[in-house]
Design a protein around this nucleic acid. Structure first.
Lengths: 199, 199
DNA sequence: TAAAAACATGAAACACTATTCATGTGAATG
DNA sequence: CATTCACATGAATAGTGTTTCATGTTTTTA
């Protein structure tokens, strides 16, 4: 597979690459991928148009590169925040809270992930299928442990991803709410009896 | 507000308008809004480029017009399918099944609704907020009736919309599954104990 | 410090797209 | 059947965006 980025070799190069990425994130968030031209990006990064091509073959590669970065970051955040949780319930609780905080602080990520459905359908699919497979593994463990009801773990994964995404859509993207404690509590009330088994 | 479409007066006019809409639906589904030019649309409809402007002021108006149509159709389908349901549980069951069948038969609708986030953010927001408000009203009724647990009905609405959407994403868009009986059953198992009150 | 490698420039070539409009055709009306 | 209205055409215009490349500058290497 073609490399997404042409890695710089010097400090100056890394700084320019960062400026390109920062400019792109800002513009993709504000105007979307298709309404952002390479000229817009280079203007925002204070570089000449041609400089863009030192680092990326085209706009699509830059986009895929950012998507991949976000997908790492988001998984890492959740993984760190739920590492020490004793129960699956606790894992879901912290996972949802962390997800909402992440997209509050990285609204670009939310937009870029969903827009990928139209920019690069395969990346979009990879992103969610990948996420779901990892999710399912955790669910299977919890089921073995008799913490979670015995239905198809893939169904559970997509149900939980759907809830997170739409709660995020409403309270982060639409309403830009400050805190999500109460919302998370409501969601967990549903899951408490619907998904989890009380020993 | 500006009219979305310039209504034709004759049979011939309606036929041309339909050809434009059909061509656009097909192309928006295959390539997305931004990768579809007006020339692509008129080519697909077997008309000259200029003819497009007899019916629409620009591509955006055509898009909004299609979005509005789908939003009516999807609501009508669900409303018809759940009209005679006795319980809220039954309503949710049939609603989910109908939604999945609808987007299976109108995959363009799913794509167009989500893409609106990037084409016309206000329309996207209107679509979901509107849907959620109507949904909430039904939930409030069910809560009065002691069928559904007492948490914020807006939270319940977004949870349920999130589930439908992501189950649809997985089994309609990704997997193109034939039938959704088993998936719907799994989802209802979660809701049965999580959302509904057993009398 | 000389040579090489990395990085940066921006004008120019090329491709594509939206939109207009003068002209023309088909259908309905009185 | 002549007039009018609705609809259709497609060449031309104007604008935008991508990408290349010859040239120049900075940094690293030997």
């Amino acid at each position: 597979m073609e490399l997404l980025v042409k890695e710089p070799k010097t400090k100056r190069g890394f700084e320019t690459l960062n400026r390109i990425c920062d400019s792109a994130k800002k513009l993709f968030f504000e105007k979307g991928y298709f309404n952002t031209s390479i000229n817009d990006i280079t203007d925002g990064a204070n570089i000449a148009p041609g400089t863009f091509y030192i680092y990326f073959n085209d706009k699509l590669n830059l986009y895929k590169y950012l998507l991949l970065q976000f997908s790492y970051e988001i998984r890492k955040s959740i993984s760190l925040a739920t590492r020490d949780c004793k129960t699956r319930y606790e894992k879901e609780y912290n996972g949802l809270k962390t997800y909402l905080d992440f997209i509050k602080n990285n609204q670009t990520a939310y937009r870029i992930i969903w827009e990928s459905q139209y920019v690069d359908a395969q990346s979009f699919r990879d992103y969610y299928e990948n996420f779901a497979v990892r999710y399912s593994k955790g669910i299977v463990e919890a089921q073995k442990n008799n913490e979670v009801i015995d239905i198809d773990p893939m169904n559970i994964s997509y149900v939980l991803m759907g809830i997170s995404n739409f709660i995020g859509l409403k309270y982060v993207i639409f309403d830009n709410k400050d805190s999500y404690e109460d919302v998370v509590a409501d969601v967990m009330k549903i899951l408490e009896n619907g998904l989890f088994i009380h020993k």
